[in-house]
């Protein structure tokens, strides 16, 4: 378990949620409030163990709903599902490519609020929805993709800064073993 990395993740989640809650200008410009959690969980899923992902989904969702009129923990399942889906397929995603980072986080940025709204409707709530909600969803998806471009290098730096790294991978593919040179 990468303890310090997990703690760092939670601190980043808390700070970004606070900023998303208090900053006014994103909503004035786009008419949409920005959700940093989908981008954060996608970036975390590329490196963090499942326990850290679970903590991020549970606490992130609880913190976010404490600032909102949503029922507590409503986005927990969609966040966790996205995190697990990315974590299980982390080898198939080319995270060195900026386009791939953007695309995966943008998809998560659209999927998490959609599933959350689905849960709200299923539970009998009446969220405010209209044609403009499609625009809001598009903005949330786009900003999630853009946030991932910030979170990826930030979490890479955090991982290197707080955890011991091996000098070389145990199975270094660049080293060629020549068993019979003659």
């Amino acid at each position: 378990m990468k303890t310090f990395y997990a703690l760092g993740l939670l601190v980043i989640a808390l700070l970004t949620l606070y900023l998303a809650n208090t900053l006014e200008w994103p909503q004035r410009i786009t008419g949409t409030r920005i959700d940093p959690l989908p981008a954060l969980i996608v970036c975390a899923a590329m490196r963090a163990p499942v326990l850290a992902l679970t903590l991020l989904a549970v606490l992130g969702s609880l913190w976010q709903t404490s600032l909102s009129a949503d029922p507590p923990g409503i986005s927990m399942i969609p966040l966790f599902a996205v995190g697990v889906a990315v974590s299980l397929n982390r080898r198939a995603i080319h995270t060195r490519l900026w386009g791939a980072r953007f695309a995966v986080a943008a998809a998560a940025g659209a999927l998490v609020p959609l599933v959350t709204i689905g849960f709200l409707v299923l539970l009998g709530h009446q969220p405010l929805l209209g044609w403009f909600s499609f625009w809001q969803l598009a903005v949330m998806s786009l900003t999630s993709g853009l946030l991932a471009l910030i979170f990826f290098p930030l979490l890479e730096w955090l991982d290197h800064a707080v955890e011991d790294q091996p000098f070389a991978a145990p199975y270094d593919t660049t080293t060629r073993i020549n068993r019979n040179p003659h």
Binding site: L17, A20, N21, T22, E24, Q27, T32, R33, D35, Q64, L67, S68, A69, D70, P113, T116, I117, L120, P127, L128, L129, S133, Q136, M140
Partner: peptide, 8 residues
């Protein structure tokens, strides 16, 4: 603070 959800 304001509601972080766009539907409230």
């Amino acid at each position: 603070g304001r509601d972080p959800a766009n539907w409230w």
